[in-house]
Design a protein around this nucleic acid. Structure first.
Lengths: 143, 143
DNA sequence: ATTAAAATATGATAAAAGTCATATTTAGGA
DNA sequence: TCCTAAATATGACTTTTATCATATTTTAAT
């Protein structure tokens, strides 16, 4: 479904959504441990996310990563697309090039309902939505 | 979702379901080409499937792979489990160890409906069912 | 029996994904 | 201005997954 990297990225952004703000930046060291991802690895992912304006950052002393108000509106699909690329979720279950709705492969119709709904959910929900669920006790940490 | 290997395995078994029988064995050479999988690679997968009695085979001249009547009843989930292992489909979307229905992770409820339905379908449908769809013109080759 | 055609077993190589290390740049504080 | 703390950039290393190659075993036909 997701690559390892995407899972890590979602965890990191969600952690920032819950714990950071413009006035409360968090550095890599202090993100890596609570989300259980090796520091050097999450650093690399955060840089990629930062380049795509999915997370915000400032360098130097008292710098770190945080989520701006705009960042909070990031759709989940955007994170996945940046890390895994656009194809991963859209490709046919058997990776057949010629498979489409008109000429569905043997697994196409089989998987369609779950897949389209899943992608739609990723397209409709923001990181803020996930963070809200945690705050309301509907879902749980740790990551 | 599936590994590459599982996709290949499903394609091979499905090909055998459509084209082989106890009296019409097919050798690796003649499977690999129509399903677009390298010969040495599909050979290895077929051996694994054979070891688990998901496909049948005989050696020597005029030997080859085929699906017995019993093989036709193989559930899709069995193929995936043999090739990818049982964990792949069941693990939490974020690969969190502590995630479960009582203490769902932030993506748990989000993904639940699609995932459970998908797994149930794999548990209820056989390779014969997929082959039938092709024969009835409901789904299409090539693989 | 001998031969040839097939699967099987085993392991080697290649590519991709995941992980780690180091040097550079930026910015704040003394 | 200088020092230090942080992100950033780059690339090397490791592990896993995918792919390929070769030697062995089995079986049918002659």
């Amino acid at each position: 479904m997701f690559s390892n990297s995407s899972k890590y990225a979602i965890k990191a952004v969600l952690y920032l959504a819950i714990h950071s703000s413009e006035s409360k930046k968090i550095r890599v060291k202090n993100i890596s441990e609570p989300i259980n991802v090796p520091q050097a690895y999450i650093a690399k992912l955060l840089q990629e996310l930062s380049r795509h304006r999915i997370v915000s950052s400032t360098r130097g002393p008292n710098g770190g990563f945080f989520l701006s108000d705009a960042n909070m509106k990031t759709l989940l699909i955007e994170i996945v697309n940046v890390i895994d690329g656009e194809d991963r979720l859209n490709s046919c279950l058997l990776s057949l090039h010629n498979c489409n709705s008109e000429k569905p492969c043997p697994l196409h119709d089989f998987a369609r309902p779950f897949r389209t709904n899943f992608i739609e959910s990723l397209e409709q929900n923001t990181i803020e939505d996930l963070a809200r669920d945690v705050k309301r006790g509907k879902s749980f940490l740790p990551l």
